[in-house]
């Protein structure tokens, strides 16, 4: 196990957000966390990187694990001038060759001189990915990394993740709304709603009653959903 939680409870203020979470990720595994809005997906990820303190329970990392974190859309204040190269060099300036390699792996070569706020949503997400790659991660954490991207943009981004994973062999934990992506690309799915409702192989989870009730997908809708696979998925957001 690269990272593991043991009976994790997290409160944000007075509110219990996560309860008795036991999960872990093996080397090279792709795990997707799905769940409705407010189900604690982002909080779980933030607990894994140490940004929120658990009320009780533990997060255990195996020693020496390098973690790359790609946050959910980043807003950079207009008053803060920041070139892509400078952004990539925070907090430590990497050797130029490494920086170029990471930019290439994330598919954003040639953007070094641009200002970060002038990038499109998709470009910025890839720059964030490139920055995470600088850590030479054993584990990549993606928090709804494709939020705000259109269908093509998000498909492209997931392709990039796949390519990166094949190159680095790193494990991936991603939080996603996009069920179609989840089903295709994950080794394991964790269905979260404050607690872990169910987890396992994508096919197993999607057939489970917990999943069905959480996402209110009956078979008819699912058929439509699969049929429209090459169209937009924005309407699925309303189902959650």
């Amino acid at each position: 196990m690269l990272i593991q939680t043991h009976n994790l409870f997290v409160h944000l203020g007075q509110r219990l957000v996560l309860e008795s979470i036991n999960m872990g990720v093996e080397k090279g595994e792709v795990v997707t966390i799905i769940g409705p809005n407010g189900s604690g997906k982002s909080t779980l990820l933030r607990a894994l990187i140490g940004a929120v303190k658990p009320t009780s329970g533990q997060v255990m990392r195996s020693p020496g694990v390098a973690i790359g974190y790609v946050p959910q859309r980043l807003h950079v204040d207009e008053t803060l001038p920041m070139s892509v190269r400078r952004f990539m060099s925070l907090p430590h300036r990497p050797p130029r060759a490494e920086l170029n390699a990471a930019m290439a792996a994330a598919g954003v070569s040639g953007l070094e001189q641009r200002q970060v706020m002038s990038l499109s949503g998709g470009q910025f997400q890839r720059v964030l990915l490139a920055r995470a790659l600088l850590e030479k991660p054993d584990l990549l954490l993606l928090d709804e990394a494709t939020q705000g991207l259109d269908h093509r943009g998000s498909a492209g981004f997931y392709h990039q993740i796949e390519a990166v994973r094949q190159e680095l062999g790193c494990a991936v934990i991603m939080v996603s709304h996009e069920l179609h992506v989840v089903m295709r690309r994950s080794d394991r799915v964790i269905c979260l709603n404050g607690h872990i409702c169910c987890q396992g192989l994508p096919e197993v989870v999607s057939a489970s009653p917990e999943y069905q009730s959480l996402f209110a997908l009956d078979h008819e809708e699912e058929a439509v959903y699969l049929h429209r696979n090459h169209h937009s998925f924005s309407h699925n957001e309303e189902l959650h």
Binding site: G50, I67, G68, Y69, P71, L74, L80, M82, L90, P91
Partner: peptide
């Protein structure tokens, strides 16, 4: 400087980098 900048950009990114 670098830590301040990163924390200004995004607290979670700072956490992930051990700041």
């Amino acid at each position: 400087w670098s830590g301040l900048l990163l924390a200004t950009l995004n607290p979670d990114l700072a956490h992930a980098s051990g700041i």
